[in-house]
Design a binder for these strands. Structure first.
Lengths: 337, 337
DNA sequence: CCGGATAATACAAACGTTTGTACAACTTTG
DNA sequence: CAAAGTTGTACAAACGTTTGTATTATCCGG
């Protein structure tokens, strides 16, 4: 391992000069800088970032904490954040919590102990507030929350326009002639889900429809299936689901009751998971914009600016909610017009 | 920030004693250890791992490099590796290369400069050999390769039983009565794809069928579509695809030619991506066992043992290749029996 | 009660970098 | 030409830990 002292010795200068030369300080002569750079290249020097981090008290690592990396949404957020952070010279450390609070706390501690430059995170479902986050991370490491945010925590936040999105999805169902629209609402300790619920509610009101059925804590296929059955029993003819997996469960529930989709039962999910466009019938979904959210989160970190950034959602209309034009070619998204 | 010196001062001992006490050295008295531990807890001490790493010359970070984290396969490998590594006290740093060689080299350098304890990786398609890996990582950091491996590199390797798997998949197609079976082979600079090609070839030979058509460099939906069309023109009635996305493209190609699946055209993909079980018709796929591969890779790292570990694959028979019993309930996998 | 072993702790040097301050060489100004 | 300013380097002290060696305390047998 070649160090700055080796370079210094080889050139007859001191390590401090080498350090400054390599970091582009204006305090070294251009001539010296060139000599140092050449010698460094020649000797195959690479900066020991661990030592550098110790001295500087922080590293060039940005931690990203997500519930599960295999979720399309999160892996795309990570991709978006990476694209910005790597260009800015940071490297990215990814942790997943599997929705477990202890894992989240452990990840935060690990990141803090590694003196990361910042943390971008989407918290695990199941926490009431962000107290544990503040406790585990401390207050001197910049925190950016995305998607699932605790608004009482300091730091920047990036969220989807959940209210508007759910509103648009529900309005679309109404326009398609559905009149009894329930919702698979997810967990209410997440502000994202809460906002979607409100968007759905408002769309019903604005559409002149009565309050619809709400099914809470529906987030996976199984719970979506059960809630789907219940909604059918309750007389619903459509569902806006705050998640795609639960929507998939609801599709299966409708099928098991012999209902045709979209003729008898309409469904719009949320998140635009890959499978939604590949299943038959293809499933309409309220797309988040994860890549953009990741970019925004990274930007917020780089700029050090607090405040909330809102990323718009986009409704992808597919077969599962297209009752009026079900004979049309779906690729052209006939209902959208 | 409270340091071991603070604890030492508070107890009237030296930092070295505190350090040894906290790391469980037998050189400190039980009584002293307890006092130190209590004081550390009281003062809210947390070890500065950066300093620790600098001194020890290595960190407790294990780097995992994959082409893309959003691929089901890779995110599951990561999950498997994590489950072992975290239990062993390591933390995991994930890098993705987007199949770009420069990104791979950069990731390796970053990991080396951060003095990671080890690297688990699956290289990007496109490299001839692993020279760049050795150059970028150096030879003193343990390397474990999984799935895509360069066998000329030192270190442990974990691979799927690609030959046996492809053999089984192809044999299955033959048993289903397909007689002209081509293959979407992927990239031949990956040993995994090469082994699958050989498995397919051997199964055809053992089944008494003539050589089939090989379509190289098919890895995504688009290239799968094109190769699918060509295979149909060439008279194929079935394809074993070394990837699921290309298989999906082939399904679409068959459909566009008006062929029924599986009656007129049979397809088996590889990787068991989520969408394969959700599409209609559901797609048979040769499942890798990514979680287990991740576990094995992590184990190989922990044990420091070189050598090759082989993880078996499992054929998931679904509708797209079930010509003989296409009226049966698929969930029971009738063809498997 | 002393010499020699053993146990427990103290001392101090590293790990490789960064950075404030001191110093030297040189240039400018009055 | 001396004083003052400017520029480029050297010096040295950190950052918080770990760890080899030295030192002190404790215990045992003779």
């Amino acid at each position: 391992m070649v160090t700055i002292s080796d370079i210094a010795a080889a050139l007859g200068v001191t390590p401090s000069t080498v350090s400054r030369a390599l970091s582009g300080s204006p305090r070294v002569k251009e001539e010296t800088r060139l000599a140092v750079e050449q010698m460094a290249a020649e000797m195959g020097y690479e900066r020991n970032v661990v030592a550098s981090n110790l001295r500087k008290g922080k590293s060039d690592i940005v931690g990203i904490i997500v519930p599960r990396i295999h979720r399309n949404f999160f892996s795309n957020v990570i991709g978006g954040a990476e694209s910005i952070l790597e260009a800015a010279g940071y490297c990215v450390l990814i942790c997943q919590t599997h929705e477990r609070l202890e894992a989240e706390v452990k990840a935060l501690r690990t990141l803090r102990n590694n003196q990361v430059a910042g943390v971008l995170m989407s918290h695990a479902i199941g926490a009431r507030d962000g107290k544990h986050i503040l406790d585990a991370l401390g207050s001197h490491i910049p925190l950016v929350q995305f998607d699932r945010v605790f608004s009482d925590l300091p730091g920047a936040k990036v969220v989807s326009d959940n209210f508007e999105g759910a509103y648009a999805a529900t309005k679309h169902l109404i326009e398609q002639g559905y009149r009894h629209i329930g919702t698979l609402a997810g967990y209410m300790n997440s502000e994202a889900y809460a906002a979607r619920l409100e968007g759905w509610r408002q769309a019903l009101r604005d559409g002149g429809l009565p309050e619809g059925e709400v099914y809470y804590d529906t987030i996976v296929r199984e719970t979506g299936y059960e809630a789907g059955l219940k909604s059918i029993d309750a007389g619903c003819d459509a569902l806006y689901s705050a998640g795609d997996f639960s929507a998939l469960g609801a599709v299966e529930a409708a099928r098991s009751r012999g209902l045709r989709i979209p003729e008898d039962f309409g469904i719009v999910g949320t998140a635009n998971e890959t499978f939604t466009s590949l299943m038959t019938p293809s499933m309409s979904s309220l797309a988040l914009n994860p890549f953009e959210m990741g970019r925004q989160a990274a930007q917020a970190f780089l700029e050090g600016a607090d405040g909330v950034r809102v990323v718009p959602m986009e409704l992808k209309v597919r077969e599962s909610s297209c009752r009026n034009h079900s004979d049309n070619q779906i690729p052209n998204n006939p209902c959208l017009k």
